[in-house]
Design a protein around this nucleic acid. Structure first.
Lengths: 247, 247
DNA sequence: CTCGTTGCTGAAACTCGTTATAAGAATCTC
DNA sequence: GAGATTCTTATAACGAGTTTCAGCAACGAG
């Protein structure tokens, strides 16, 4: 749907300065990434074996290891170009600084849920504790983005001055990550992801806000609860199995 | 499938009621669990291979798979007997219903941090998304315990009536789990785990509490921040400076 | 005691991620 | 263009988790 095969999307600077050797490597890298995305989309998490990936990318088995280091690094490399998110967020104008935070969360979740096979695999790689690749994910840009949103909210007087913005962001991130994890393993159904995230964010932000913002945030908490309960009620309804897919 | 549902398999209190066959299985199970704990304590996460484990437990390689199903199931089985926690918590008397919640968190963290090798491995297994074993961890007892604490707090008028206790508990759990994850992968140093958890819990509970409890919870948020900043300051201090407690 | 069942053993095999190694091709340097 | 460097390729191998299967010992019931 997005730029699935866009090899030029990853080099941001000097295209002419690349030696031929480096250009070859970059092209092989792109082929591997492309093949990985395809394979994950086709067969899901389990379908991505390094041997199949190498064959699909038209390289030897050793090459992905030379260029990326490990399978997990390849999967995490897919996460890099989520700049789609920043584009979509840049187009957004909201006066309410807290509204901006909630919208950012929504956009992010929408992107992930639109391609479950791919992003479930990627988030599973995020929660992999085996090797030491967290620096890849702890993107400074991503961090800076959220910290900026919180700083804006603080400047607007929504977040209390004595609250540590760094730790506020971390706690929000905890909620987000665990909700993603629950989605990946199937505890949380897709349509509950956004409400659950909004509920958690509202709860934490309500704990960190100035008195005059308590009302709106409390309303958001209740709204999140209401949506979640509606979903659970629908799901608990047993016999209403009217999802006959014809064709 | 075969057995797979033997609720009190590890309980050695009732030997008479078990048939000899079941007793043998239970004893093998216990040996495997024991060997697993030993091996993890000795060599850490990576040192636990199924072949070594089987040899140490004095069983064949196939037996752990017969009795548990997978390596991950064995590691998660270690998590079952944290009844140590319930014992320690039962001895505790606190009038403040929120104080009880924070103390429960502290006790739990204390148990985990006291045996890092073992519990880092176990928590890593919790975050493993490969197979479908979440039911093992989503212990109904554990859930009921926390839900009970929150219900007590609600009865005492600390948690607002219109707040969903189920989702409040889930959001608290999100913070707890992600903090554990950050500890496992090394993002969060051991001495920051408890303050970070208290900070997150205070923030969320403050977002869910009744007006009269805002003050104490706000104080807890600030206290958590202060402890975290102290730790960061200590850590940022280069070591050539006299580290001793200069009076 | 006898027979059928249960389930462990031992060994082999399979898949997967990862590494090692030798050979050879492409690229850079002069 | 010749030599040196760098990287890919092909293939084998290792160790890991997991499965399979024949053989056999222990167990439960009659």
């Amino acid at each position: 749907m997005t730029q699935a095969d866009d090899p030029a999307a990853q080099d941001e600077a000097g295209p002419a300065s690349l030696s031929r050797r480096e250009a070859g490597k970059a092209e092989r890298r792109a082929r591997i990434i492309h093949a990985a995305r395809e394979l994950i989309r086709e067969t899901g998490n389990a379908g991505l074996s390094m041997r199949v990936l190498a064959a699909r990318a038209g390289v030897s088995l050793a090459t992905p290891y030379n260029l990326f280091g490990s399978k997990r690094a390849i999967v995490l490399a897919l996460l890099q170009d989520v700049r789609d998110f920043h584009d979509r967020f840049a187009h957004l104008r909201a006066t309410d600084p807290l509204e901006r935070i909630f919208t950012a969360v929504d956009i992010q979740i929408e992107i992930y849920l639109a391609d479950p096979k791919l992003y479930k695999t990627m988030w599973a790689a995020v929660f992999d504790t085996s090797d030491d690749l967290r620096a890849t994910l702890w993107n400074p840009r991503r961090d800076a983005f959220w910290r900026g949103l919180i700083a804006e909210a603080a400047e607007a007087g929504a977040v209390a001055a004595e609250i540590s913005q760094d730790w506020l962001q971390r706690q929000l991130d905890h909620v987000f990550r665990c909700i993603m994890l629950d989605w990946v393993v199937g505890i949380l159904p897709p349509d509950a992801v956004a409400p659950a995230a909004r509920h958690g964010y509202a709860l934490i932000l309500k704990g960190a806000c100035t008195p005059e913002w308590r009302g709106p945030l409390h309303a958001r908490v209740l709204e999140g609860q209401a949506r979640l309960e509606t979903l659970q009620a629908v799901r608990a309804m047993p016999l209403r199995r009217g999802d006959g897919k014809s064709g």
